[in-house]
Amino acid sequence: MSTVLDRRALNRATLHRQGLLEPWKCPPLEALRHLIGLQSQVPDPPYFSLWTRLAAFAHDELTQLIQDRLVVRTGMMRATLHLVTAEDFLTLRPLFQPVRERAQRSHFGKKTAHLDQAELLAEGRRLLAAQPMNNKKLKAALHERWPDTDAAALMYTVHYLLPLVQVPPGGLWRSYGSVPCTTDEAWLGRGVATESDPGPMILRYLAAYGPASVKDVQAWSGLTRLAEVVDRLRPRLRRFTDEQGVELFDVPDGPLPDAGTETPVRFLPEFDNLMVAFADRRRVISDEYRQITHTKNGLVAATVMVDGTVRGRWRIDRVKDTATLTVEPFETLTAGALEAVEAEGLRLLGFAAEESQTLKVVFG
């Protein structure tokens, strides 16, 4: 009979594996490798994600990794932008090609059905290998070749279906605007693998997010039909059930801290992968609060975790030489919790707005 793990036990296990119980004392590259990347729909959140997980972290450390081409910003899990190690991009990117093909068909399939797709992709690769291009330039170049086809459909088809990399200065701390892209080979000197086995990726996911169900792995990755792969891995996995009787899987050495382990206040940025890494997200956020923090078009708010789960959201506003962190609790917090939130909030402001002369934490 499988051991039952309640929601609090799952919470503590996942927080431990995410560096949110005790901060990690490791280089940012090692943290990124363990987490299998960080979602990066906008440039700044990965910096905050590393800051909240590492005992010591400076902006320049991640910026340098991107500039040195050891970390790349590219489309990966769930067909969304992530910062991942260059090695993970090269080896894991083929796994997500079906996800990206599905997204292309859903959004632009009808508008590009009349085209020779191989010809379009060959032209896109040629253009982007010659020089990095932002969306506007790529759209214009492709539309010149296919003037009777929707320019955005041409451009996004190339983005969805080719293994492209966004290049600096785009994607760096406080960078904005359209980011130039180039090809895998042009940026890294070699192309992505031609095929990949999802088994090792699933083991890595469990090590970083587990214990978890098959549906959890599929929600995090965007892939489907992984039950067969997990079945193949069964002899190598520990098995549990949650309170609803759902079967959970875990790597043999996955830590399971005591469910009563105290947890520090943590500030997570927009799009942090922890908020989207499970089909059942109640181990980190209630269904009620998820209605507030997650929008229908895929936006995920910056959140505050108290006692291991989301209890509010936050934002930073800058006016002249003053940076203000506004924390909006979703429930009444104890005086001790409010003091801890304020203390960690000031530490957050020191990282996010170090140039500001005045730092303030207010509760909205």
Rank of each mutant, 00 (worst) to 15 (best):
Y205P: 04
Y209R: 15
A212R: 05
T261D: 10
L172A: 08
P235H: 11
V179W: 12
E262M: 06
L188V: 03
G210C: 05
D242G: 04
V251L: 11
C181S: 14
V246H: 08
R225S: 11
F249M: 06
C181K: 14
W187H: 13
V192D: 03
L237Q: 00
D197V: 13
L233W: 10
Q218T: 12
F249V: 08
A212D: 04
S221A: 08
T182S: 15
A186R: 14
L268H: 08
S213K: 10
L226V: 09
R266S: 13
K215F: 02
G177N: 12
L233V: 10
R234P: 00
Q166D: 11
F249G: 05
P168G: 08
R266H: 12
G170N: 13
A219W: 13
T182N: 13
P255N: 05
P257V: 07
R239Y: 00
V251N: 04
Y209C: 07
E270S: 10
L223Q: 06
V214I: 15
I202G: 04
R238N: 10
A212F: 13
T182L: 04
E262R: 11
V167M: 12
R225T: 02
F240I: 09
A208N: 09
V165P: 01
A219K: 14
T224K: 13
P257I: 07
T224P: 03
V179R: 07
G222E: 12
E262Y: 01
P200V: 01
L172Y: 11
E185M: 10
V179P: 00
G245N: 06
E270C: 01
D258K: 03
D272S: 09
L172R: 09
R190T: 13
G191Q: 11
G189D: 11
R266D: 07
P180H: 06
G210V: 13
L206E: 08
S175Y: 02
R225G: 10
Y176M: 10
G171Q: 03
A219T: 15
Y176G: 09
V165E: 01
P168M: 10
P255Q: 03
G171R: 09
L268K: 04
R239L: 11
C181M: 15
G199S: 14
L256I: 08
Q244A: 14
V229M: 02
R174C: 10
V165N: 01
W220Q: 08
